[in-house]
């Protein structure tokens, strides 16, 4: 066997090109996560003068009993499920519309991706203004349409506050779902629809039997991305409600942030990060398996 000089050069160059990026990823992704798992076994808060003291599983024991933690998990779950559900439905409608040929399609597409591109924190400000109890335009519209009699305090009422932040999130991220689904729709050959309609299928049947199965992978991918983002949602909530009123919209991320930045409880905050990470990875792994199966079915 001769020396493979080319391979060696290739390996050396390859690593030279990859290593800077890998190091940065290790620093910004791997270190914080590993650090959170490590620090989760310590108590480091005001009672220990912000010095880490090993305390084993104490943080995790505390978490089990922590009603505020469980409430934030519940809030996050509700927020995530409803956001994703509405985004999927609306995103699909928009994608289906944008997949058709019509005049001005380019412009409509541009408009449709606008919400995705705008800063969430600023969008949260915009929606806080729209949902304003006194001067908000949403109240004005509903009153004028006589859907409600008196103005609603959208962000001040626990239930309506959750509805409001979900609405804002749906507005912000539906375009992302639509973009991904549109890519899926565009990869479906028109011939399939024509053959199917010659066979006598109605548009609805075509949608059920061709469109949905063929864009299933894109749906899963879009939902996977959206799940991760919604599960870790921070800026929207922080700016719109700050987690209020009375913790009604407090998500895990808001709770983690408060634990660390307000209560200076680093050990417990780290444990919260670790558990959130595990939940996320678990769901992602399940979705990944589902995606594999879908792709296997497609072949």
């Amino acid at each position: 066997m001769t020396q493979d000089y080319i391979r060696q050069r290739e390996k050396r160059t390859g690593w030279m090109l990859v290593i800077p990026a890998v190091l940065l990823l290790l620093l910004v992704y791997a270190f914080p996560i590993l650090r959170a798992f490590w620090l989760g076994f310590f108590t480091e808060n005001l009672s220990t003068n912000l010095q880490p003291e090993f305390s084993g599983l104490e943080n995790y024991g505390r978490m089990v009993q922590d009603g505020r933690f469980w409430q934030s998990i519940g809030n996050t779950a509700i927020f995530t499920v409803f956001s994703l559900l509405f985004e999927l439905i609306l995103g699909l409608i928009i994608a289906l519309a944008l997949d058709q040929a019509f005049r001005g399609r380019g412009l409509v597409r541009t408009i449709a991706i606008l919400p995705w591109a705008l800063p969430t924190a600023l969008i949260a400000l915009a929606w806080r203004w729209i949902f304003n109890a006194e001067y908000g335009v949403w109240n004005d519209i509903l009153v004028r349409l006589q859907i409600i009699g008196d103005p609603v305090n959208w962000l001040g009422d626990p239930n309506w506050a959750m509805v409001s932040v979900i609405a804002a999130d749906v507005w912000k991220t539906t375009s992302f779902v639509a973009i991904l689904l549109l890519a899926g729709l565009q990869s479906i050959s028109q011939d399939l629809y024509e053959a199917h309609s010659i066979d006598g299928a109605t548009p609805w049947q075509s949608f059920r039997q061709i469109t949905l199965p063929l864009i299933a992978p894109q749906i899963v991918i879009a939902m996977l991305f959206r799940f991760a983002q919604a599960f870790g949602i921070f800026d929207l909530i922080q700016v719109m409600t700050g987690g209020g009123p009375g913790g009604a919209t407090e998500m895990v991320s808001i709770y983690i942030y408060a634990t660390v930045m307000r209560y200076l409880d680093f050990g417990y905050g780290a444990a919260l990060v670790a558990v959130t990470f595990l939940i996320l990875i678990l769901v992602v792994a399940l979705a990944g398996l589902g995606l594999k199966r879908l792709q296997a079915n497609a072949e």
Binding site: T2, D4, Y5
Partner: peptide, 22 residues
């Protein structure tokens, strides 16, 4: 050309083994 490396054997150009050359 040297774009792939032989698993075995040699390439000689003008009597010179060019295997290690890029």
């Amino acid at each position: 050309a040297g774009l792939d490396q032989p698993t075995e054997g040699r390439v000689l150009i003008g009597g010179k083994d060019v295997n290690p050359l890029a």
